[in-house]
């Protein structure tokens, strides 16, 4: 995981380090970052898989497209691009599912 190349060190001072759990794996983040931001910074572009199985990541980055939705602490459909991380946050990325029977 290459963290620094994605995080700008010039111009910005990070807040406190924060650790979140994404699909059972620990991910290092910093206070103030969004879930999507932290994942991108850790080199991870895929945020979920659609029902049909296509990978999706950040698209609009402003909470309009709902491509970035993940489950946070048991709550589904959370827009990771506008939701700040907090220590111990449990994130689950949506998986494909069979619509209908």
């Amino acid at each position: 995981m290459e963290h620094e190349p994605r995080r700008v060190s010039a111009f910005f001072r990070r807040g406190r380090p924060v650790q979140i759990d994404v699909d059972g794996e620990p991910v290092q983040a910093f206070e103030g970052e969004t879930i999507a931001g932290a994942l991108l910074a850790s080199g991870r572009r895929i945020l979920r898989h659609t029902p049909k199985g296509s990978a999706r990541g950040v698209f609009c980055g402003m909470g309009a497209c709902f491509d970035c939705i993940v489950e946070v602490d048991g709550d589904p459909g959370v827009r990771s691009c506008i939701t700040p991380v907090h220590q111990g946050m449990k994130v689950r990325t949506p998986k494909p599912f069979q619509r209908g029977k």
Binding site: F97, R99, G100, K101
Partner: peptide, 24 residues
């Protein structure tokens, strides 16, 4: 609601109506 994995198999009626479409 949003499309979700199958929650019910058939329609439910009574105090209200609930149905899950083929799309989920």
């Amino acid at each position: 609601t949003e499309a979700i994995p199958p929650l019910i198999r058939r329609r439910i009626s009574g105090p209200t109506l609930i149905r899950q479409t083929a799309n989920g």
